[in-house]
């Protein structure tokens, strides 16, 4: 009788069925994108590392910035497979629009269209974190920033992705010049200053964020069109 009451182990009394391993449809491939808009330019940067969801790097050459029109790009971090699907949707629809209307969709219209596209998958979302950047009909630089389900906001600068926490405060300070009464020179950065800052920002993210690195695509958008250039980041 006494022996029955004696417990020797902390094992559960009832056998608990092992919860079955379920298929995980989402992978975070990481990556950082950022954009800065001026009155007549927009500069976008995105690294080209694609992680495997953990410590591994699948490829060092996956470009996160995608040209939609001559005045607009989309920069996407998050899950690569969803990114590709999202791009394909946008691209086919934009080409359809171009044939129907004889002109490409304006950047603000694309921004709203992306929001609708993301929200349509509200209950099985694209795991993507987007920036839409470019110049509007008047040639003024513009950036839209999104969450995965389509909430969006027009801003002057923004970052998204795994290095977001490292880059956003830098941009707030250096581009937004928040809470600074005294500023030397004009408050708005020149295109050259913005380009230099964007390169420094993504390099800095690469210092600490393991999902950011290898190379960066630096994209300049103005009235003349979209210009891509490559930029080296740390490979480790």
């Amino acid at each position: 009788m006494m022996m029955d009451d004696l417990k020797l182990t902390a094992l559960p009394e009832k056998e608990v069925p092992i919860s079955h391993h379920r298929f995980e449809p989402y992978v975070d491939n990481g990556g950082t994108v950022l954009a800065v808009a001026g009155s007549n330019y927009c500069i976008v940067a995105g690294d080209t590392r694609m992680s495997d969801g953990g410590y591994g790097i699948q490829t060092r050459h996956y470009t996160k910035v995608f040209k939609l029109t001559d005045k607009c790009v989309i920069a996407t971090s998050g899950m690569q497979a969803d990114t590709i699907a999202l791009r394909k949707r946008l691209d086919t629809q934009l080409r359809q629009y171009e044939r129907d209307h004889g002109k490409s969709m304006s950047t603000p219209a694309i921004a709203q269209f992306l929001s609708n596209t993301l929200y349509h998958k509200r209950f099985f979302p694209f795991y993507t974190f987007n920036l839409v950047a470019g110049v509007d009909e008047d040639g003024i630089g513009c950036v839209w920033t999104y969450d995965a389900v389509g909430s969006h906001e027009r801003v002057r600068f923004s970052s998204q992705g795994s290095g977001n926490q490292l880059i956003q405060p830098l941009l707030d300070n250096q581009v937004g010049k928040f809470n600074q009464q005294i500023v030397d020179g004009p408050r708005e950065l020149s295109a050259e200053q913005a380009l230099s800052l964007v390169k420094d920002a993504i390099t800095s993210a690469g210092e600490r964020d393991i999902y950011t690195g290898d190379f960066a695509d630096i994209v300049t958008i103005d009235q003349k069109g979209v210009h891509f250039e490559k930029f080296d980041l740390k490979l480790d």
């Binding site: 449809p25 992978v27 491939n29 694609m50 699948q58 060092r60 690569q80």
Partner: peptide, 8 residues
């Protein structure tokens, strides 16, 4: 298996 695709 999730559709991730790349070339290298």
């Amino acid at each position: 298996l999730v559709g991730t695709c790349y070339q290298d």
